[in-house]
Simulated scan of single mutants.
Amino acid sequence: MIKLISVIISTYNPNQEKLDLTIKHLEEQSLSKDCWELIIVDNNSSKDVKINCSPALSYQLIKEFKQGLTHARLAGIRAAKGELVVLVDDDNLLMPDYLENAASFFSANLNLGAAGGKILPAFDNEPEAWLADFYELLAIRNLGDEVMLARWDNTYPKVSPVGAGMVLRMNALTDYLNKEHLILDRTGNTLSSGGDNDIVIEVLKAGWEVGYFPSLELKHLIPPSRTTFKYISKLTKESSKSWVVLLLSHHICPWKKIPRYTLPIRKIKAWFAYKAWSNKTNYIKWKGACGTFDGLAT
């Protein structure tokens, strides 16, 4: 049985209303508060982070001065005392049974190293229709209602959890914690990513299973600023580059590296191949291709 879960919220200049909601949903967890701890990591915010919660909820607030989500998560994990770690962003609303379900799944499957579930969007405003093609970039995922598990086979499994709500067995993190970390995640206002994928790969390579459990459900609060054409275009390009760099670092990249001097002509050819001028979706996909080229030229 899992005796203690460590919930880690990493935050940087948070929206106070969304952070308050994130904590409120943790307060409403069905799992007894004696069975989990809350660690909040302030990732060098420009002003003090204010924590609003009931007196019944105790928490530990630590500050990580090294900028970047990876640094913040590492600080939280190293401060954690639980057998399980749950990574929560400061705009994630966990359903009331989230922690209880996590404890149950990991108690029943002793080879389970990492897990996630459904991440449903909660938009402040109704987004334009084209955004649906890029939900995955916004950590929105719904793989259905069946439990799915995967092991390492030198490829990245589709069922792998993403950072929002990711549940990790502490014993599965030994190799990840002891490695030299490739910092791909967001630092300040950059939109690079991949730190959560790096965790999953290290867990898999260490011999653990990863899984998708649909009853691990949370809502992701998404403001209008993250649904704009400009934002998604930039996010797509930077995420694509980060993904390639990550795959190269683990020697599982399916594409060959390319000379940097070929970048301009490749991007021009891709502009026409994707018909990037024709609509927003095609333009964003072209930006993703440009990011991939940039990654392969590193």
Score class of each variant (00 low, 15 high):
E126K: 15
G291T: 08
E146L: 10
L143M: 13
S10H: 04
Y98T: 04
I39E: 09
S54D: 15
N154V: 01
G116T: 10
D42I: 01
K158P: 00
A206Q: 14
V203I: 14
N15K: 14
G163S: 01
L168G: 02
A75M: 06
R226M: 13
L168M: 08
K256M: 04
D34E: 15
Q60V: 13
S240C: 14
R260F: 08
I140C: 07
F65E: 12
T262G: 01
Y98A: 07
V162G: 15
G76W: 05
F106C: 11
Y212G: 04
D198G: 00
F272H: 11
T174K: 15
V88Y: 03
L177A: 00
L4R: 15
K50Q: 10
A72F: 01
A80E: 02
V7T: 12
L184S: 08
L4P: 07
V162N: 04
L184W: 00
H181T: 04
K256N: 15
H71N: 13
L120P: 07
F134E: 11
A80P: 05
G207H: 04
M95G: 03
S30E: 13
W152N: 10
S193N: 15
A122T: 01
F272T: 01
D91C: 11
G207S: 03
P157E: 09
K66E: 14
I140P: 05
A297H: 07
K3H: 03
L235Y: 13
T70S: 15
K256D: 14
H71W: 14
T236E: 08
S233E: 12
M1R: 11
K33H: 11
R186E: 02
T187E: 05
F65H: 11
F293R: 02
V244A: 03
F123C: 12
Y261W: 05
E136L: 08
D196I: 00
S104Y: 08
L191T: 15
I9D: 04
P214R: 06
M148F: 06
K230P: 03
S46F: 05
G113L: 01
P223H: 04
L4M: 14
P96Q: 10
H250V: 06
V41C: 05
L74D: 09
R169F: 09
D42A: 12
G288H: 01
K3S: 14
K205F: 02
S104E: 14
N171G: 13
D48N: 14
C53F: 02
K280S: 15
N43P: 09
K24F: 07
